[in-house]
Amino acid sequence: MSMIAIKQVSKSYGDFQVLKNCSTEVAKGEVVVVCGPSGSGKSTLIKTVNGLEPINQGEIVVDGTTVTDKATNLPQLRSRVGMVFQHFELFPHLSIAENLALAQMKVLKRSRAEALAKGAALLARVGLSAHADKFPGQLSGGQQQRVAIARALAMDPVVMLFDEPTSALDPEMVTEVLDVMVELANEGMTMMVVTHEMGFARKVANRVVFMDAGEVVEDADKEAFFAEPRSERARQFLSKILAH
């Protein structure tokens, strides 16, 4: 059963077409990595999944709910779809514990005690219990991103979206974030991940979607994609980023 279905999605900013007739699917329990050169539209595509970016054409269905339907209650849908951003986007005026509790209380209407307890458990899981009372600005980038993942998990999402989660990190902090994501994948979480981390893709992805210039150029099983990409553009892309 597909958790995310993206069907012939197109989007333009004025004359510039960011997404051209893109289609792909993420099945329940599957990990799909979306890669491609900068400006290929992969970040835009993942933001259309929870309606953060509106689209001009096509249809997106998440867990049985049509995102692109005007009648859809977007906040309610989004509360079940976790999202992690390139720049973490923790709330800088709130402590780590409050960052984790806010949406639980306001959106899911959990009690403060319940929200804090849930937050504390997830903080322990990402190995940051000692930092509950600190503010985001006092944490390193890697720690902030782990908190951001915990914050998304606190909403009990049915699927997690990652938009270049390691791109803004110093190299030595990439691993700690990827470790959390690998663990999540191994637990069976459905994940759609925009990333350049091909090591991560090789390790946990089921499928790889390769995008270029707003188009889904390749949508293949991981083994097939890495062994022998069908398109010339994907081959070039892989040879450039795997050369080192």
């Binding site: 906040p75 989004r78 999202m83 720049h87 986007e89 806010l102 949406a103 306001k106 959106v107």
Partner: peptide
């Protein structure tokens, strides 16, 4: 930053909640 609005909305907060709490 605009990303703060996105992060709030991504967790299901309404426009009013995003303004008021974030």
């Amino acid at each position: 930053p605009r990303g703060q609005v996105m992060a709030s909305q991504a967790m299901g907060m309404t426009t009013a909640q995003t303004m008021g709490y974030v």
